Amino acid sequence: MQSIYAMHQSGSDNLEKQEKFLQASIENIVDLYLIMLSSLVEIRKKEMEYQVLAQQKHLATPEERNPNLRFINNPILVALDANNSLSIALENRKINNWQANDDTILMLLQIIKQSELYQKYMAKKAVTFEEERFFVADMFSELIAPNEKLYSYLEDFKLTWVDDIPVVNTQILKQLKQITHEEQSLKVPPIYKDAEDKDFAVDLFRKTVLNETELAKEFIDKTPNWDIDRIAELDTIIMKMAICEFLKFPSIPIKVTINEYLELAKEYSTPKSSIFINGILDNLVKDFQLKNRINKVGRGLM
């Protein structure tokens, strides 16, 4: 949707260039995932460095000489630091953001150590593995992921990440909560589940752009009280994409298409867009079905 909108705004007809940008934007989600996950590793390392320096102070306090090691010995954080899948992915994709920008990590560490969550965790006489895991998950979801300065850094680093941050953070939190005492390893997930999944975004982009005129004709007659120029541009793009899925993607259920594009309208377009689009798409589906223009394959796809 954003790629098609960008083409409209720029007046460009360079389909190949926009396709490459679209693919690169999707691939870059992996970098965002690695940066966010590795923040946990780097935060622990900074605390380790701090404790070493504190112990070496000439007038170190008793607490500095004998620090509470619970945080740096947290089994989840230790496992992430030793994780081969994460280390290899960071090296292969040349992710070194926190080495080049450790002030963000120091800021996050300070926020964590000042938090009630950290204070309660460190004050416990003993903790179970589940409590260790809950602490890391809560630390990530409550203190790291919502941090505005971190968000600003990521937005400045790559603007296309703005919409990807919630998706990535949700994935990381899910993985953290799934770590068990028996299985503490965490695998960096693939960006695509299979070849068909990889091709889908580009196929949808290409089929929508190359058929925009024909797709627009499908709903123009269904908006008799609206001048086509008065319909929000994003609304027309959303409807074209939805119609494209109805007619050219036989494996996608109709209800899935409608629900997903209504969510896009609610998130990105005008307050009333989802109601308007829902009415148009609902009428179109009835018309397409009456004329046998929709051919979905598989059970439950209608």
Rank of each mutant, 00 (worst) to 15 (best):
residue 2 Q to L: 10
residue 8 H to I: 15
residue 11 G to L: 11
residue 12 S to N: 07
residue 12 S to A: 13
residue 16 E to P: 00
residue 23 Q to N: 14
residue 24 A to D: 09
residue 26 I to E: 13
residue 33 Y to S: 06
residue 43 I to F: 05
residue 45 K to S: 11
residue 45 K to W: 00
residue 55 Q to T: 12
residue 57 K to M: 09
residue 61 T to W: 01
residue 66 N to T: 08
residue 75 P to F: 06
residue 76 I to A: 05
residue 80 L to H: 02
residue 85 S to I: 03
residue 92 N to I: 01
residue 93 R to W: 00
residue 93 R to G: 02
residue 94 K to Y: 01
residue 97 N to H: 05
residue 115 S to I: 09
residue 124 K to A: 15
residue 125 K to G: 15
residue 129 F to Q: 03
residue 132 E to K: 02
residue 134 F to K: 14
residue 138 D to L: 10
residue 140 F to Y: 15
residue 152 S to N: 13
residue 159 L to Q: 10
residue 160 T to E: 11
residue 164 D to K: 12
residue 164 D to H: 04
residue 166 P to I: 04
residue 166 P to Y: 02
residue 169 N to P: 00
residue 173 L to I: 08
residue 175 Q to G: 06
residue 186 L to C: 09
residue 189 P to A: 12
residue 193 K to P: 01
residue 198 K to I: 03
residue 208 T to F: 03
residue 209 V to A: 09
residue 210 L to D: 04
residue 210 L to F: 00
residue 227 D to R: 05
residue 228 I to T: 04
residue 233 E to F: 01
residue 245 E to R: 15
residue 245 E to Q: 15
residue 247 L to E: 14
residue 247 L to D: 08
residue 268 Y to E: 09
residue 279 G to R: 13
residue 280 I to Q: 02
residue 286 K to A: 09
residue 288 F to M: 07
residue 293 R to K: 12
residue 293 R to W: 00
residue 295 N to F: 01
residue 296 K to L: 04
residue 298 G to D: 07
residue 299 R to H: 07
residue 300 G to E: 06
residue 301 L to P: 01
